[in-house]
Write a protein that binds this DNA or RNA. Structure first.
Lengths: 342, 342
DNA sequence: CTGTTAGCGCTTTCAT
DNA sequence: ATGAAAGCGCTAACAG
């Protein structure tokens, strides 16, 4: 119906209302310092509504030196957890009057966080939500120089990090299987260059020791193939664990496949727990127990932290603990040794 | 290291090079109409490089009336296909000098395509890639009024649509199972409100009839639960099909779960084919055959089509046919009747 | 070959 | 209670 056309400008609706465009600006922005004659106010509002006026975000941002936009850089993974983190971030940002743009970083071509500075330098956004960074070497202590927050990862400096309680998740897992008599447990996870994996691994070591549990850790590819390969190797060794936690949903498929192929029954011979929750786990051959993490809360908290930085409010690291639950399904049972000991 | 600071402006580097900022602009933009003294050129380039000059995209866009950005609106689904479409789009956009922002539309709160006009009206982007629209009622023939292209869906008007060859995928599926003797086939898919589903369904009806195949279509929720429920109902009816195509990866899990629960063996009693390919399918209890669609090509073609519209080049609907392959796995076998007839 | 000028659409201080 | 004017950082005629 309507042809392709430039939207109405402030001056257009000023002309329609018979006032100066600065007056329109004040009225539309609800400037509290000024008062307007009610009838002028009405004329302006009517004119604006009639043409469906939308302020030019560019011009406004140029003038104000604030874009009102934030960029969320996420790794381009098949893993569905990010879509939940995004949901939380999107919703909170909308509540706080910000606009979120998603940038996906190709997994094959990861870039250092500093790469994304250009978005701020070019004034496309006010701040960066970084979910993509691999774990930083300790010596990379340079300031990024632009407002940013690491999401689900810790960057090189404190005060910029919003993460979940991975240690708590590991504890939930270990307590669950230890309570069922498992004394030898494996953790199959991605590379520890991912900060979440690093933290899970550290926690697993510490907590296993405290509980007198023997722990075997395998780092492998973030894929079905990775899970398969790690599991196959694990089974080839002597002294095979009786329970294993798996860091990533894609790996879970590989782990289950390898166990099946090797004739290791789940859960009779091996209990399996996923650190990613997904609905599909409930429908597998043997439904898989998982730990459900506070993903939406992570996204929302990250937005809050970033806005704090943009507005130069003092900020500290944030640890999201809740809600975190173990979703019990059929892939966990008592340890074989305990059983036969009955 | 560097403190948070405003980036250098054109005037700053003009000052550093001792020239007027318009000269800097010309040089940095490689204006071919003008010539510059090599030494001036060098001085300018050096100054710009030294401060890592980044043009303010806002100011530039405001002046040029072009932002160089496009928005990709995608449904917020767990389905990993979108990440491949995105990859194709991102790469092509980068090649063509555009910047892509992703907006995810909450599945619970779908909005009409016209909703996203505001992004163009506010001049946040030059065009819209719409992957989210449900199938439009025929009477919604309004022009959107801004450059846009529907991706993997057809909008109400021709010339704006980039889709894949769903009919070809259905034909591949039907030919595959018909060749193995299946005469009664089911299609379990999402709601036909989605244009891809609508086209698959239409094609399935037409092609089944042409081949003398009995077709049963079930539309259900886009989820594991949907697949489960549709399959359960399907099995309750008399005259159960011997092969089924499943529209969506999440549904596949539900379908397999329901078949297992009902004691229907795959592939002996029921052959299963997924219309979404994903690595996890290869690792399931019974590895699932799938049709691999040209997703990255879809994303790239959509970007090309949108840029054509932004630049007001004549454009037509695009149908992406290739590469499309059937990935054979273990979930398809000869029809039971044919077997026993051996 | 390079500088001057105007202006993209908006906000904001200062007048009136 | 409203208008005038300046300016955000950049590009693109047009001068010279």
């Amino acid at each position: 119906m309507t042809a392709q056309q430039r939207g109405a400008r402030l001056v257009d609706i000023a002309a329609a209302a018979g006032v100066h465009h600065s007056t329109v600006s004040r009225v539309l922005n609800g400037d509290p310092a000024q008062s307007v004659r009610p009838e002028t106010y009405e004329r302006i509002m009517r004119a604006a509504r009639q043409v469906g006026y939308r302020p030019n975000a560019l011009a406004r941002a140029l003038k104000r030196s604030r874009t009102g936009a934030i960029v969320f850089v996420i790794p381009m993974l098949r893993n569905p957890i990010w879509s939940i983190v995004q949901r939380g971030a999107l919703q909170r940002a909308a509540e706080r009057g910000y606009f979120v743009m998603m940038i996906e970083e190709p997994t094959e071509d990861p870039r250092p966080p500093a790469h994304y500075r250009y978005l701020i330098d070019e004034m496309r956004a006010d701040g960066l939500l970084l979910a993509t960074a691999e774990r930083m070497p300790e010596h990379t202590r340079d300031e990024l120089g632009v407002p940013h927050v690491y999401v689900n990862r810790r960057g090189p400096r404190p005060g910029h990090n919003v993460v979940m309680d991975e240690a708590g998740a590991v504890r939930m897992f270990l307590d669950h299987v230890a309570g069922l008599g498992h004394r030898h447990v494996a953790l199959i996870d991605c590379s520890p260059i991912w900060d979440t994996v690093y933290r899970r691994t550290m926690a697993a070591r510490r907590l296993s020791t405290a509980r007198g549990i023997t722990l075997t850790v395998r780092h492998t590819l973030t894929s079905e193939e990775g899970g398969w390969e790690a599991t196959t190797k694990l089974l080839r060794g002597g002294n095979v664990p009786t329970a294993c936690g798996v860091g990533n949903l894609n790996q879970v498929f590989g782990v289950l496949g390898a166990l099946r192929e090797a004739g290791v029954r789940v859960p009779e011979d091996m209990s399996v727990v996923s650190f990613d929750e997904d609905a599909c786990l409930a429908y597998l051959d043997v439904p898989v127990t998982s730990i459900q993490m506070p993903l939406a809360e992570l996204g929302a908290a990250a937005v809050d932290a970033l806005i704090a930085r943009i507005e130069r409010t003092p900020a500290t690291d944030v640890l999201i603990r809740e809600p975190m639950t173990l979703v019990p399904r059929a892939s966990v049972a008592a340890a074989p040794a305990v059983r036969s000991g009955h």
